[in-house]
Design a protein around this nucleic acid. Sequence first.
DNA 1: TTGCCTGCAAAGTGTTTGCATCTAG
DNA 2: CTAGATGCAAACACTTTGCAGGCAA
Lengths: 143, 143
Amino acid sequence: MKELKPQRLKLNGYKATPQRRVILDAVNAIETHFTPQELYAKLLIHHPAIGLVTVYRTLKLLSHLGLVCEIESPRQAHRYARCSSEHHHHLVCDGCSKVVNFNHCQLEKLSRELACETGFSISGHHLEFTGLCAECQKTMEPA
Amino acid sequence: MKELKPQRLKLNGYKATPQRRVILDAVNAIETHFTPQELYAKLLIHHPAIGLVTVYRTLKLLSHLGLVCEIESPRQAHRYARCSSEHHHHLVCDGCSKVVNFNHCQLEKLSRELACETGFSISGHHLEFTGLCAECQKTMEPA
DNA sequence: TTGCCTGCAAAGTGTTTGCATCTAG
DNA sequence: CTAGATGCAAACACTTTGCAGGCAA
């Protein structure tokens, strides 16, 4: 997956502060999705001076720049992940919160039909499947 | 849309208290979707003694009984609505928060494909379109 | 009578904001 | 230098929980 570099910040007129570099590095090192709090916990190990607020603010900034994407889960903390840049959706495990991406969503047609029927001008959609991943299914099996 | 009656509570072993009756009546009277807080505000007008906590608890109960459905919106208060009982999804206006239902979602095929590819046992999905409703589009037009 | 229900207050969770200080450019 | 960034504490929005008293069945 592509690396996020501090230059991307400068290009957009934002300062490349040490905190932001640290956060970018950490995001690059994480292969999975994570919550702001989880990322903060990891950062604390080597950078005890960093603030949770800065993590929130930086993730929001990166999300705004399109460098990370936000996975909005109702009832839970939002999760972030490096952006695969292409349009995609998520499959979330109810057991371990593992997230799998998929990108063949065929909603354009449905979107057009709905716009036509309802008069809405549709700008986006949110699709998420939930269930149990293969490992969690095993765990659930009778012992 | 179908009416919710207090008997449904008794049938399920729950007490039909005055508060629950009041909440059922209010839910019956609302045609749209609402947040717990909005419902609470309406109730206060004629039933100043009712507690917000009871509204939360009762909505959760009704949702558990399948009498109302919960519309989970990330970043906002969850909304509730009388259940149309059939599987459906929502179209939410970014301008006025109006919610429109639609029920022809063709995700079963996609769901099966994903289960096959990923090993997940898929139990549910959440689909929501966002955009601007016809009225809000007018409002946005240059004056 | 009794176990479920209520309402208050308080706690909890996740996130944002005000503000004084600091620092990248 | 100076606008923007940081970190703390406090505020915030929404929801849940502990508990003493209350009421439907």
